[in-house]
């Protein structure tokens, strides 16, 4: 290689206006990671299908094909492209609608976890002292309550309610988030730029919002991509126990549950939702890995 090709002027041209933030750097690295990029695209496709697919189909998820109240094999003529389930509801429509529910639960519950977790973690880590003690002992306490038990109690108290579902899951998932954010905040707190922020007259709230939260977001985003699949699985598990969404509403978990019962007769009722769900879970995990690599400052 000749050196001439490598070089550009020594002094950076002064009128380079836009800097490249760490976020932009990370995004660039993420796009260069093939597995993560493929995952991102597949997730996009699945989300698009789940959101808009049901409108494009001839059958809706809760519509029973009264002419064929049995498992119909895939048929173009009947517009059951992937066949129907045992009571004659279109499998594709149900899978796509289930995806909508599963993804919604995943995103909203994670959103709840994110909000509570980051707030509690950042406040606890930054303020330290008694506040930290109280908040973290509360987290410890919550950890010791078995998750399913907690969700079941909520369900019993407030009934089976779609919104309650993600509130319940989110309110459990925030514990780990809070601990992660607190740990990050503790290391941040002793960095010089935090001291600089205090010296330049920043109030606690402004320091938390301006310096703490943006700097913990990297780790938080990675954790979010790993939490979403967890929540989707948890929802499936609850649905499996009959605590999840109610018929005729459905989710991937419910579909897999139903499909498993008919595995021997119509394996496709299990396979189709299972493919969607595992693909989603895989993609989120790959994406999380990719994000972690992209955001890892040691790589720079």
């Amino acid at each position: 290689m000749t050196d001439v090709n490598l070089v550009t002027p020594a002094i950076p041209v002064p009128d380079v206006i836009e800097g490249r933030s760490l976020w932009q750097d990370a995004w660039r690295r993420l796009l260069r990671n093939r597995a993560a990029l493929a995952s991102l695209i597949i997730l996009g496709v699945i989300a698009f299908l789940s959101i808009f697919g049901p409108y494009a189909l001839a059958w809706s998820y809760d519509q029973i094909d009264w002419d064929h109240v049995e498992a119909v094999p895939p048929s173009l003529a009947l517009k059951h492209y992937l066949g129907t389930d045992s009571v004659g509801r279109d499998l594709l429509a149900r899978t796509l609608f289930g995806g909508r529910v599963s993804l919604t639960v995943g995103l909203l519950a994670t959103g709840v976890a994110l909000f509570i977790g980051v707030t509690v973690g950042a406040v606890s880590g930054y303020l330290g002292g008694k506040v930290d003690q109280v908040l973290m002992r509360f987290v410890d306490l919550m950890y010791s309550v078995p998750l399913t038990f907690f969700v079941i109690i909520l369900m019993v108290l407030f009934g089976r309610n779609f919104i309650l579902m993600f509130l319940a899951i989110g309110s459990v998932e925030w514990l780990t988030m809070a601990r992660i954010v607190r740990g990050q905040t503790l290391t941040l707190k002793h960095r010089e730029f935090m001291e600089a922020a205090r010296a330049s007259g920043g109030s606690t709230v402004s320091i938390l919002l301006r310096h703490v939260v943006p700097n913990v977001l990297g780790v938080v985003i990675v954790y979010v991509t790993l939490t979403i699949p967890q929540v989707i699985l948890l929802e499936s598990f609850l649905s499996f126990l009959g605590l999840g969404v109610q018929e005729p509403m459905t989710s991937w978990g419910v579909l897999i549950n139903e499909g498993a019962a008919e595995l021997e007769i119509t394996p496709r009722t299990l396979i189709v939702p299972a493919i969607f769900m595992t693909a989603t879970l895989f993609c989120f995990n790959f994406l999380g890995d990719g994000l972690r690599d992209a955001l890892d400052p040691k790589d720079r």
Partner: peptide, 29 residues
């Protein structure tokens, strides 16, 4: 009374632009 720190990189918030960093005391006061 202000302070200049030892480690030039560590004393700047990595997520903020140079302009925002310099302006921060002004925004606070």
């Amino acid at each position: 009374m202000q302070i200049v720190f030892q480690d030039p990189l560590a004393s700047l918030d990595p997520r903020m632009t140079a302009g925002d960093i310099i302006a921060e005391p002004l925004r606070n006061y």
